[in-house]
Amino acid sequence: MTAQATDIATYNFAYLDEQTKRMIRRAILKGIAIPGYQVPFASREMPMPYGWGTGGVQVTASIIGPDDVLKVIDQGADDTTNAVSIRAFFKKVANVAVTTETAKATIIQTRHRIPEYPLTTGQVLVYQVPIPEPLRFLEPRETETRKMHALEEYGLMHVKLYEDIARHGRIATTYAYPVKVEGRYVMDPSPTPKFDNPKMHRSPALQLFGAGREKRIYALPPFTDVVSLDFEDHPFEVQTFDQPCALCAAENVYLDEVILDDHGGHMFVCSDTDHCEKRRAEGHRGHLAPETMEPAQ
């Protein structure tokens, strides 16, 4: 850049001004005080598009300190482009340490997954949320859904589940599966697969949810009861996979399907790339894994 170019526009350290961070922290605290309740906040315009993680980025920017270690995942992976981009953003504006190792991170920002490695006390999981309102597709009006939450009128939510069973013989919701928090608020866990729902229940980590475009923040303090909605005779159940990860042989983890060729050849591998790499480093081998480890990149 030329000298003339640099003084036309400058950005604050860590992008958000302190006033804004305090406002967002207040919203987070309110969210923690009322688990599962959607707190409106004055979401800022962020330098990435709405719908691309602006809510999560604002939450992370408001809580991150110089000693934090940040991990960013998208679809479970550290190396998807949007995760790379958000991680690079924080490296640039806040100069924080980053990692791909779940256990080493103090803050993990995620889109669509909860890491396989169990989270521990002191860690914060920040979810990027596109549509925070679990009732939105049943009732499009904000004014009405707010009332439904206030009066705990959640019958409609079960109508949707009833319809699934009547039509498909099972509850056909596979992701963004609604949960009830501490027996009070019905909450959207963001579009994580329902496979991850049980990980939210009584997690020792603090879970924060940021929806930038919809201007809502909500939270699950550590050890909060999170129960997936269901019927007594059609209990909630998670997806199971017929085979282990083709690279690290892990079972009971969420798998991505990868297409190998033009003839329908495919394989299933861990969606959580850090978990998969760690297992392979420990010597686990799936049936399609190379015999020797590739050199670390």
Partner: peptide, 25 residues
């Protein structure tokens, strides 16, 4: 339009986790 374009265009971000869940079902 900043909100609208972000949310419309976010559809090109990876959704393979949700899609996998739907595919399975």
């Amino acid at each position: 339009n900043v909100q609208a374009t972000g949310f419309v265009e976010h559809l090109k971000l990876p959704h393979y986790v949700d899609f996998q869940a739907e595919l399975d079902l």
